[in-house]
Simulated assay, not measured.
Amino acid sequence: MKLKGKMVFAFLLLTACTFAEDFRVHKTNLLGAETEDKNQSVSVGINDSVILALPQDMTFVQGLEITIKVPKIVTEWRDSVAWSLYEDISPVPSEKRIDYSGKRVFVGTFANRLSQIIKIPLSEDSDIKEDAYSQFIKISDAQKQGFIFLRFQLAMKGAGDELTNAKISVSAKPILKNKGRLVIQTEPPEGTELKPFTTFVDGTNVNPEGGILLDTGSHDVSIVSDFYRNELRTVTIEKAKTENLHILFRDITPMIRLFVPQGSLVFIDETPVENYEMLIPTVPGDHTIKIVVGNYEIVKTLKAANGINYNVSVSMDAVVSEEE
């Protein structure tokens, strides 16, 4: 009986597969793979199929990991149950359908293993590594069709009820990229329209529209413009998460801030300053600042440039000395 099972499996290997085949399953089961790194599972029969729906948002997904667990009876009947992966499936699978046509891209059995791990890359830049503990399988149109079609079937005749009625556990989870997304939201100064700017991440010019996919870890963000002050930020990117960065642009006009004693008289370019507790806008170029405190007069000059604030302060001190 076991030899017969091996002969049937050898035939299945030969049919994995250069042409589309028509086949029927006992039941179609649906299993969704969420975007989070966690398992979703379903229990299926020996002759069932499982439709593993891919996440709608594939931004952070580089592949799918499928874990199949079988009861001991399956391993006792070596190579008695086969599993297959298909592409070009039609019609569109649903829980109400059992008849399909598709191209078998891989077929295998469980031999003496109680579980089987399958890893399927889903992106061109996938860095999923092949290893000795899982089966690495590429399915060319998986992301395009939006699902993985997994089929089970009894690969031998004459099996007892315990085997034919056995249940198989199928679970799936996405394999996430070691990346996150940075979304930069910019806002112009109040009452103005947004003007051009350039964004750099780690010194590289990037287009922030729609978000920027970055490796996990810390990144330096620099935004420069001829119309706004430069903005520098450091952000931390977490795996498969979105980091939002809000930038409120500041006017490039140079500003003067005065720190002077109460009651002082202040003149900038001979124009009296009415309220020296507020920031005072000015224009680029040379300026003369005169501060009068009682009988004392102080005159300073500064050369203003766009994007810089200037603090002008007056300090008064009393010196105490002793004499004999």
Rank of each mutant, 00 (worst) to 15 (best):
K144D: 13
N205T: 11
I291W: 00
D88M: 12
A159N: 06
V201T: 03
K27Q: 14
E190H: 03
V107A: 13
V314L: 13
I298T: 13
M278T: 06
R151C: 01
D37T: 01
R250A: 12
T216D: 07
M58H: 09
N29D: 08
M156L: 10
G210S: 08
V266W: 01
I212K: 08
R233N: 11
Q116F: 03
E193G: 09
K173E: 10
W83H: 06
V224I: 14
I51S: 12
Q145S: 13
K177P: 04
R229L: 01
A159E: 10
Q135W: 03
V74P: 03
I237C: 02
I68W: 02
D251V: 06
E65I: 02
I89Q: 06
E209F: 12
A172M: 08
Y100N: 02
G5M: 01
E231Y: 08
P284C: 03
N295A: 11
G5D: 09
M58Q: 13
M255W: 04
G146Q: 06
D99A: 12
A155V: 06
I268Y: 04
D141H: 09
N165V: 03
D22M: 00
I252K: 15
E124F: 03
T236R: 06
I120N: 05
F19H: 05
V235K: 01
K173M: 12
D99S: 13
T271R: 10
I139Q: 04
I98H: 09
I73G: 06
P208G: 09
L214P: 09
L14I: 02
T199S: 07
D251C: 03
K69T: 12
K239R: 14
Q153E: 14
T282F: 01
Q153W: 03
E34F: 10
P93N: 11
S80R: 05
G160H: 12
R250P: 00
K195N: 01
A318E: 13
V260R: 08
T204G: 06
A172C: 11
T282C: 06
D317E: 13
S49I: 12
L64P: 02
K173D: 11
S43T: 15
F200A: 04
V105E: 13
R250N: 08
V25E: 06
R257C: 00
S140V: 04
T192R: 06
F9D: 02
A172Q: 08
N295P: 02
F19S: 09
W77H: 15
